[in-house]
Design a protein around this nucleic acid. Structure first.
Lengths: 110, 110
DNA sequence: ACACAATACCTAATTTGCTTAGGTATTTTA
DNA sequence: TAAAATACCTAAGCAAATTAGGTATTGTGT
């Protein structure tokens, strides 16, 4: 996703969070949106994204809806009921991670 | 470090940040300190920590000082000049990661 | 008209950073 | 006196990326 390997492990959370917010999105759109939101700082590579989308679908957290736009196929992903619960868990884990990191790197808070 | 794989990639930053704060520490002490600071939420496993300390030493970011306490060996690690610069970089990357994640998971901020 | 960029999907080999599961040895505690 | 804690270590395996490809269509610049 970057040279930076801090993002390793966060992709599923990012995807599920975006889909929670936007309802449904297709893969390529997700890569554009993340780049836009982070001001170009984070680029989700397709080699990371597509396998992740397939994994989340296989786990039953996402469903797919095919669409044909301009003679080109799009696969819109959206969150299932099961996915909503898992998203809530992942978002909590992310918030916990962030607060733990903040006290770890900021000794004044410890 | 946990079941949670968000921490993947953050161990070097955690170690260097702690050593910046505390001057010098030995491996086992680092595992105790991280667990204490995070209220038991994050446990740095020795299988992850020792190879990381050796890697940081090999890169010239840390130096070692042996000590014998109670007939048992301790290896105290401390940051080199080169390590100070790299620590500053890693801390900046971590802060960037955190702010990017915050806007990604919090659509109201986007 | 034609090349190149952008859109849109995909896979597979490799790398990386951890987990899991061991190992040695001494000191402290129940 | 057995178990837990202290203190170091390594190696096989796993999971999530990176890197480096692939196909095909549409839009853009010259």
């Amino acid at each position: 996703m970057q040279k930076n390997n801090l993002y390793k492990g966060s992709l599923s959370t990012i995807v599920l969070s975006l889909l929670t917010d936007q309802g449904k999105m297709y893969g390529y759109q997700i890569t554009r949106e993340v780049e836009k939101i982070t001001g170009g700082q984070l680029k989700v590579t397709e080699g990371a994204l597509y396998p992740t989308l397939h994994k989340l679908e296989a786990k039953g957290l996402l469903s797919v809806e095919m669409a044909k736009v301009n003679n080109r196929v799009r696969k819109y992903y959206f969150i299932t009921e099961k996915g909503k619960k898992e998203t809530a868990n992942l978002l909590n884990e992310m918030k916990n991670f962030i607060s733990n990191m903040e006290i770890l790197i900021n000794p004044k808070l410890a």
